Amino acid sequence: MDFDVPPESVDFANEVEEILTAPETGRLLQDVFARQDGMDGNPRELYRHLGDAGILAPSWPVEYGGRGADFTATVALLEKLVAHRIPQNLYCISVQNVGSLILAAGSEHQRKTLLPAIASTELTSCILFTEPGNGSDLAGITTSAVRDGTGWVINGRKTYNLKSAYADIALIAVRTDPQGSQYEGLTLFLVPLNAPGVVIRPIPSLANEQFHDIWFTDVHVDEDALFGQVGEGWSLITQMFAAERTGLDYYARGRHWLDLVAERLDEDGRQPSDVVRAERARHETRITASKLLSCQVMQNLQDGNADIAESSFAKWHCSESAQRIAWWALDTLGPDMLEPGSDAGDRTLEAAFREAPGMTISGGASEVMLDILSSARVFDHAPRGD
């Protein structure tokens, strides 16, 4: 792994810092926090502002709305977004997950028409895989798509999906061959969420950002909504997991939370005990390791060497590390941490406590990540005995 950060990425980080500290960004962020939509706050105007500045897809090729930058620019962007309390889930799902899959596996027409709009957030996207009876076991998907002569008709229900109410299109996994094997019968579509027959309802959430239930009733889509080939959905899902599970967003949040705890301790003039200092050092070491694992995954993705086991390990390590930091923050600062205060740090740590339980479930449960890792043939090149 190359540990050098290109000067261009340092310059980009400084540019992002300037944009995020601008008064207009602060005004738009406060509008999100006001939650005037009755849900978790519509971030689209804020993200259009950031998209207009051209900072949301720095590592994409220029012709698709990016800057052609090194992956370290994306790392710097996530760190800055988290540090300035910009909600990240819409960005990660739309740009880093769906957008990156379109970049890697979409048709040239899809790349040219969709990616610049996603990079500017004129078009936002979400992922609809999970169903009421199928979470980690995506091979059990029952939502169906049937040809109707002029396209496809989709019926089914998806649940526990983040940011669906703020998305224009959804990458949805459906079953197109009920007679085939569980894996061979899956297909992906890019479906407009304003299509007749689509109903979206929020699900209350312990964390700041809500989930959604989505029903599809006789939803017609044209043939060009098909993503990839019929029946190759599972291979595309697996390809997307390698990009989705970099762990970068979990690392960035854990890093920020740990910094906030240190600031609170300094502000209060406390003299941390030897135990607290030792625990803080362990968390510092662990979150640094999380960053290195995440960067290794992203470098391999950039080089075209994505590995699902490596990504799964990074996601597991980063989410577990961030969750432990949130629990440790409460143990260290006490219940006062849970009281929303006048400063951003108070609110951020209180939100972290509510978000922490889901970090090792969303994006791939820790148990599933470890199962994938244990099944990987990581010892193929190890010496073998007779």
Rank of each mutant, 00 (worst) to 15 (best):
S9Y: 02
D11V: 12
A13I: 13
I19E: 10
E24I: 00
L28G: 08
A34V: 02
D37V: 04
M39R: 10
G41P: 03
L46G: 08
R48C: 05
G51N: 10
D52I: 00
A57F: 01
G66T: 06
L81D: 08
H84L: 07
S94T: 08
V95Y: 00
G99I: 04
S100C: 10
A105V: 03
S107T: 15
A117N: 08
L123Q: 07
T124M: 05
L128V: 04
F129N: 11
F129R: 13
G133S: 11
G133T: 07
G135N: 05
A145N: 09
R147D: 12
W152G: 10
G156S: 14
R157K: 15
T159E: 14
Y160S: 05
L162C: 00
L162R: 09
A170G: 10
L186I: 14
T187E: 09
R201E: 15
Q210A: 07
F211E: 08
H212P: 00
I214W: 03
W215F: 09
H220F: 07
V221I: 15
E223N: 15
W234Q: 03
Q239E: 14
M240V: 05
R245C: 05
Y251K: 04
R280T: 13
T288G: 06
T288K: 02
L293V: 01
S294E: 04
Q299T: 00
N300C: 00
N300R: 13
A306Y: 01
A306Q: 13
E310K: 03
H317T: 12
A329S: 15
L330T: 00
D336H: 10
M337K: 04
L338H: 13
A352W: 05
G358S: 10
M359C: 01
T360K: 03
I361M: 01
G363C: 01
G364Q: 09
V368D: 13
D371K: 11
S375R: 15
A376W: 10
F379N: 07
R384P: 06
